[in-house]
Design a protein around this nucleic acid. Structure first.
Length: 426
RNA sequence: GGAGGGGUGGCUGAGUGGUCUAAAGCGGCGGUUUGCUAAACCGCUGUACGGGAUUAAAGCCUGUACCGAGGGUUCGAAUCCCUCCCCCUCCGCCA
């Protein structure tokens, strides 16, 4: 959520930054200004009446305790009370309207982010390694996986529908190996504290990180309760400190967490639905940081390096792009995407997204810290995939496939695979 | 799921309709004393949103709201009523 004071004081700046996203959000700024103005006027009027009522009510108490008559004052205050009730109701209505708009307005892109419209406008910031060369035509992961008997999309569809994955044998082991490898890496080498959060999330938490109210249709929701399936560990983990005031010396806080991620992918039908590149349930290890505002961009670079380290250890070719203003996510001010090379697709696949949301989520979730000056300030919250597993799995199968159809296991995963060095047909 | 008991400031905890402007203690901050430390003593103490003076910020002056959340009763609610959430105890169920 944007700071209403910023909108009040620098509306043109806010409008200009929002306009770079190209979604027309800046059009709502004028509405906000009007509602804010009305709201403050009514609050002021109501507060004055409340002050009067408080004073007179005390006088009534004093009169009554002396046994004197206070019926004139009581009648007058009844009138005042009715006016207060009416004003409070108007303020509540305005508040609700203001919140409705504010909760739907995205974060301001950082000023260093390139203005652009679509993925093609995302500048590439770096790349690592080279695309592997094959002496044969590299296969797609769905063929490799089915021939090895480790992936079964047809049976997953029988259980759930399209967009779900059934891993089997060494394939299931590989998924579990990756989860453990990633958690071990981030906890023992990158300084993150492992957390294991709930996967069912209440509405307030979903609002806190920005999934709701705007992206309701992308979320899976329970029928009988207002609970949502976690779309990413960012939601439960960033909400750990909701409504808290942290001590300055606690910061920065680094958490990492494994969760499955559930996404309806509404409107995505027809777009690359084969295999496991876009699915309704995938595993992910996520990194989340709570940091002081003055450090947040350094922390973003460190987080990006932590995510890159995963791909480097696994020997996978990748590139890093900086999302342009039109592509930056709703809550984020600046986002790096890491795209891993998938030879069977002849394409880069997004496996990590590292974002600095600055105080956008902290304001929604009310997460502050008390500075050395005694002032409470909102923390900056960062999140980054470290990494998404389904697409990482794709890159592993397609990169390490051999001419005979087997798949080699990269060295760091071998201990997690119980010593297995390659996956052969079952 | 059922019955009962709870939820008050950073923490403990008093408060059953009117100086509650929330007692007291602990902690924290500042000060006095002191060779230093400790103790003792004195003072201060939360959050949010408005209004005012000010070039602006800080600070200041002033008001309102906040005792789990939301409604209600009343001139006046931490206190009474209703709904919901969470915690504790016991019962039931269950991995």
């Amino acid at each position: 959520m944007l700071d209403i004071k910023l909108i009040r004081e620098k509306p043109d700046f806010v409008r200009q930054r929002l306009a770079t996203r190209g979604r027309g959000d800046e059009a709502r700024i004028a509405d906000i200004a009007v509602l804010d103005e009305q709201r403050r006027k009514l609050i002021s009027e109501g507060d004055n009446l409340k002050a009067e009522r408080n004073t007179v009510s005390k006088q009534i108490g004093a009169l009554k305790s002396k046994g004197e008559d206070a019926s004139v004052q009581m009648a007058a205050m009844k009138q005042v009370g009715e006016r207060i009730t009416a004003l409070d109701a108007e303020v509540a209505t305005l508040d609700a309207k203001l919140q409705d708009i504010l909760l739907m307005i995205p974060n301001l892109p950082h000023e260093g982010v390139a203005v652009g419209k679509e993925a093609a406008d995302n500048p590439e910031v770096k790349h690592w390694g080279d695309a592997p060369k094959f002496a044969f035509q590299p296969k797609a992961h769905w063929d490799i996986g089915e021939q090895l008997g480790i992936l079964d999309f047809a049976r997953a569809a029988k259980i759930s529908g399209s967009g779900f994955i059934l891993y089997k044998g060494a394939g299931a082991r590989l998924e579990r190996a990756l989860i453990n490898f990633l958690l071990d890496l981030h906890t023992s080498e990158h300084g993150y504290t492992e957390v294991f959060p709930p996967f069912l999330i209440n509405r307030n938490a979903m609002i806190g990180t920005g999934q709701l109210p705007k992206f309701e249709e992308d979320m899976y929701r329970l029928r009988d309760e207002e609970m949502y399936l976690a779309p990413t560990a960012e939601v439960p983990v960033a909400n750990i400190h909701r409504d808290e005031i942290l001590r300055e010396e606690q910061l920065p806080i680094y958490y990492c967490a494994y969760t499955p991620c559930f996404r309806r992918e509404a409107g995505a039908a027809g777009k690359q639905t084969r295999g496991m590149i876009r699915v309704h349930q995938f595993d992910k290890v996520e990194m989340i940081k709570f940091v002081k505002p003055e450090n947040s961009y350094e922390e973003l670079e460190k987080m990006l390096a932590n995510a890159e380290h995963v791909l480097q250890l696994l020997g996978l070719h990748y590139r890093v792009v900086l999302l342009c203003t039109g592509e930056v996510g709703f809550a984020s001010a600046k986002t790096y995407d890491i795209e891993v090379w998938a030879p069977g697709q002849n394409a880069y696949l997004e496996v990590s997204s590292c974002s600095n949301c600055e105080d956008f989520q902290a304001r929604r979730a009310n997460i502050r810290f008390k500075g050395s000056d005694g002032k409470n300030r909102f923390v900056h919250i960062l999140n980054g995939s470290g990494t998404a597993l389904a697409r990482l799995y794709v890159a592993l199968l397609e990169t390490y496939q051999q001419a005979d159809g087997t798949v080699k296991i990269p060295e760091p995963l071998v201990p997690y695979m119980g010593g297995l060095r390659e996956i052969r047909p079952a």
